[in-house]
């Protein structure tokens, strides 16, 4: 246990230092996630007509929550893993008695701490510009959000890491991620809250992993009604599924690995 704690502490502190090397880049990375703010403008305008069930303020809160959820859950592991395979850098990781998964997970986790101060800064700026949209979530909602956001990040990471395993066979596995991003974009609630979907479609979508990556935690934060228990079960179910597939692909992939360029 002591070993795991020391390992986690060391890796997180070094990767945090690594991320802080990119001071200017961090701000741009945060800004690059501002699609929800643009969509917010569109939806709040549309809500003036009054035919969407949610008011302009609700939309503003929802999309600012989406922006924050994206900041907590952004994942790029597939590009890093692909590069490690193509350039043979995975070799160094394989020589060490620690699954490379943990290096990637830790670097993403540490990056959150480097990124969030910028994100909170933008949040403060937003509420200063639109004080009407300001709200304070209840303690209960905030607690449920905290659990949901950790699980959402884990699920998103596992999903992308599983796709990354295909780099053992096809080298440009990021193409798979770009394809799946289409589903992520439309089904996760990033473009529109799930309330805007037709009911039968919404019911189907709620069994896929996508809404739990954005819609679920964002709704908890703004107080939209969601089934928390069912949400947790679906997330855990998908996470377990992806974890098992990922492990299987890892074992198969290692036999395929040729340590290119190294």
């Amino acid at each position: 246990m002591h070993r795991i704690f020391r390992l986690a502490h060391t890796i997180l502190s070094v990767y945090y230092a690594y991320m802080l090397e990119y001071r200017a880049e961090l701000l741009f990375w945060v800004l690059s996630g501002s699609l929800p703010i643009i969509l917010m403008g569109i939806w709040t305008q549309a809500a003036q007509s009054g035919q969407f069930g949610l008011g302009a303020i609700d939309f503003a809160r929802y999309f600012i929550a989406v922006f924050m959820v994206r900041q907590f859950t952004v994942v790029w592991v597939i590009w890093e893993f692909e590069r490690e395979i193509v350039e043979g850098k995975l070799s160094f990781r394989l020589l060490q008695p620690l699954n490379p998964f943990w290096h990637h997970f830790a670097s993403h986790f540490a990056e959150r701490f480097a990124r969030l101060p910028f994100a909170f800064g933008l949040l403060a700026l937003f509420f200063w510009l639109y004080p009407n949209a300001f709200w304070i979530p209840s303690f209960g909602n905030l607690s449920r959000f905290a659990i949901a956001i950790i699980l959402a990040f884990t699920l998103r990471f596992l999903m992308q890491y599983t796709l990354a395993m295909f780099a053992f066979w096809i080298e440009r596995a990021s193409a798979l991620e770009q394809f799946s991003f289409l589903f992520y974009l439309f089904l996760s609630g990033m473009i529109a809250p799930l309330e805007q979907f037709p009911p039968f479609m919404r019911e189907i979508v709620l069994w896929t992993p996508f809404p739990y990556l954005i819609y679920f935690p964002a709704s908890l934060l703004v107080g939209l009604p969601v089934d928390f228990g069912r949400g947790l079960l679906v997330i855990l179910g998908w996470s377990t599924g992806f974890f098992l597939i990922c492990r299987w692909l890892w074992q198969k992939g290692l036999r395929q690995y040729s340590g290119m360029g190294a």
Binding site: R6, L7, T10, I11, V14, Y18, Q96
Partner: peptide
């Protein structure tokens, strides 16, 4: 030294 610290933790 930072990379070495990671190695120290990984190799216990």
């Amino acid at each position: 030294l930072d990379s070495l610290r990671i190695n120290a933790a990984v190799y216990n």
